[in-house]
Structure formats: structure tokens, C-alpha cells
Amino acid sequence: MADRDSPVFSAVSSSARQLYLLLRCISFAPKAQVQISEEGLRFTASESSVLEGMVFLEKALFTTFQYKAPRHSTPDSDASVDEQEDEIATNPTFAISLPSLLETLQIFGLSTENNANKPNAYRRDGYNNAFSHDVLGISGSCSITWEKPGNPLTVILQEAQITTTCDLVTYEPLSLADIPFNRENLVLKVIMRASYLHDAITELSSTNPQSLTLTASPTSLILSASSTLGSAIVEFDRDSKTGHISTNRNTNGNGNGTDKQGSGLLETFHVPEPFSQSYKFSHVGNAKKALASATKVSVRADEQGVLSLQFMIENLEGGGVSFVDYRFVPLVGEEGDETSTTEEEGEEE
């Protein structure tokens, strides 16, 4: 009877900050879908079935992790009650407000706006206040419990002698379908330091582009974007330790080009044949928080043009690494030509 009354899921983490830093990587959507399994928690955010972000909080991130798969019976079955109760349902899934969960995890001031994009800033920049971990010498713990389907997700935070309990409403699962990505037929695979790609996306965003074009050949990887404000190109050479960033802004018909050196160092470079595809820039821009927290990023594309960005993030507490995955559906037809059309109209004016 005690086992029957125990919650479906309960876990304790010694670092609410680590959970916050991982989940904020997919904070572009108002709701996230949560799937609980024996291996951990999978959080998935999506936008219009063309952008998907996923964070997996594996059980190793928690000091204790207990999961009891909910049992269900088949009403029309002729089996006995005991046999029906032995039937195990699929892993439970529900939706939750992602902003509310993030606000809860940082309720003790685990992050500040200035340090939001720097997961190691707490130790690196010397910033401390009266409530920082370095001053208090403690690490806020986090307990997460989900009793059963229909119940709220209960988050209990403890810091020193203060305990805060928050019940977050759960919703019916979102109508999400994973964006298909064929790992067996890759036309592009590049592994590089995340900071290089972060700098490249930041540089390209200066022209406020609508789309990002990713072009690869057996010798180089090129990211380009353009708008009425100008154009920018970032090129990484396969055999070079430096990437060449070429920027050209054009607002009045006169080009103003500058070239500067940026770090390249592509650890893995596999492009069997030329590849070129465009993606919505704002979608790719949503991954900047993950890029800022990650140490490495794997850039992959399959034969359908679906882009996958997988970020490796080093865990602050206890070592190890976690992964955040993004998938992007490419622009097709008129979508890909929309930016060029806008530029031509601006030039005619």
C-alpha cells in the first residue's frame, strides 16, 4: 500500500543553479513538455514545428532519483485485476510553464542578468554579494516531486534555514512531433568550440537579417546573412587555425567592408560534398543562450537539410557534462528568397 501511495517521481539536486542554467537554454517558448523516465527528465520546447530545443536532465545530476512508472489497466481486458495493474503505461508526459519553472529555480537569486550568459562567472569575475554562494559557503538544494497525473509539479528550494515550496500547474501534453533528423545520412558534421559559433552569430546579427545561410564545401564552412542594412560573412577554413570574418554593410549604396581574424580550429570537419541551406535567423538566434553556456558545439545537417546543433555543457557541480539539442527546419522556396526580394526593393527605392 505504501508503494502504491508513493509519488510517481521525486528527485533531489544539490544545485538548483545547474538545473536553471540548463533549462534556460531552451527558454524561447512559453511552455515545455516534460517526459519522465528511469534515465531522467526530458524537457522539449518547440515553435511551429520548425524549431525544437531539448534538454535532458539525466539522473546523475541528482543526488537522489526515484521513479515509479504509473500503472494502468485496460477496461475491456478479461484479465484479473492483479494482471491489469501489472501493465505499465508509457513514460508519463505533461506540459509546464517554462518561465514559471525558471523563476522558481532562481528564487534565491541564483543568477543575475549580467552573469546570465556566463555559467562560470560566479567564480571568475570576483562578483560576490551577501547572498552569494561564495560568501555563504553553501549551495542551494532543490527537491522536485510529481505525485501523479493531474497533480502539480512541486519544487522545494532550500537555502541555509530558508525553505520555499512552489506548486507549478501541469497541463495536458503538447501536440509535439520530433523534427525528423537522419543521423545515418549526414551531409555536414563539424565540431568546434561553442564560443566561435557564438561570436559568429553575434557578428551576423548586426545587420538584422531574416535568414542565415549555411554553406559548406570540403575545405570550408561559411555562415552568411544579409539585409537592407548590409551583409556579413563568417568563414571557417578546414585546415586553418583562424576563421576569417568579412563584414560588409551597405545602407546607402556605398559598401564599407572590414576584415578581421577570428578563432577557427574546427575539431571535426566532415563535408563529403558541397552543401548550402538557409534557415530563419531568429530561430538560430534562440540558441545563443546555449552557445554561451556550452564549451563545444556539434553542427550537423542531414540530406533533407534539417540542421542539428548539439551543445556540450560542463556541469558546475560534481563534474560531468550535459547536452542540449536544437533542430531547425530549413527555409524552402519563397521563404528562402524573401530576404533577397526585400533587398532588391530597398535598392530600387
Rank of each mutant, 00 (worst) to 15 (best):
residue 161 Q to H: 12
residue 97 S to V: 05
residue 305 G to Q: 00
residue 235 E to Y: 07
residue 255 G to F: 05
residue 257 G to L: 11
residue 292 A to Y: 07
residue 199 D to Q: 14
residue 37 S to P: 01
residue 94 F to M: 02
residue 328 F to S: 04
residue 285 G to M: 13
residue 279 Y to P: 06
residue 68 K to M: 09
residue 94 F to K: 00
residue 45 A to E: 04
residue 135 V to R: 05
residue 195 S to Q: 08
residue 49 S to Q: 11
residue 204 L to I: 00
residue 281 F to D: 01
residue 260 K to H: 11
residue 103 E to V: 04
residue 110 L to C: 11
residue 223 L to H: 04
residue 260 K to V: 07
residue 266 L to H: 00
residue 262 G to E: 09
residue 302 D to W: 04
residue 13 S to A: 15
residue 317 E to R: 09
residue 320 G to Q: 08
residue 348 E to R: 14
residue 3 D to Y: 05
residue 144 I to Q: 01
residue 335 E to Y: 06
residue 80 S to L: 08
residue 209 P to M: 05
residue 323 F to V: 15
residue 237 D to W: 07
residue 181 F to M: 04
residue 211 S to L: 03
residue 128 N to F: 13
residue 230 G to M: 01
residue 3 D to M: 06
residue 175 S to Q: 12
residue 167 D to P: 03
residue 236 F to P: 08
residue 144 I to W: 01
residue 75 P to F: 06
residue 126 G to T: 04
residue 77 S to L: 10
residue 124 R to Y: 10
residue 122 Y to I: 12
residue 320 G to P: 05
residue 258 T to C: 07
residue 142 C to S: 06
residue 259 D to R: 09
residue 128 N to D: 13
residue 29 A to W: 05
residue 130 A to H: 11
residue 32 A to H: 03
residue 204 L to K: 02
residue 286 N to Y: 08
residue 313 I to G: 05
residue 271 V to F: 00
residue 266 L to M: 12
residue 313 I to Q: 06
residue 124 R to S: 15
residue 264 G to P: 01
residue 166 C to P: 04
residue 2 A to W: 11
residue 85 E to T: 10
residue 42 R to Q: 14
residue 346 G to A: 14
residue 142 C to V: 06
residue 104 T to L: 06
residue 331 L to S: 00
residue 170 T to N: 05
residue 291 L to T: 00
residue 64 T to A: 01
residue 30 P to R: 11
residue 295 T to I: 10
residue 24 R to D: 14
residue 242 T to D: 08
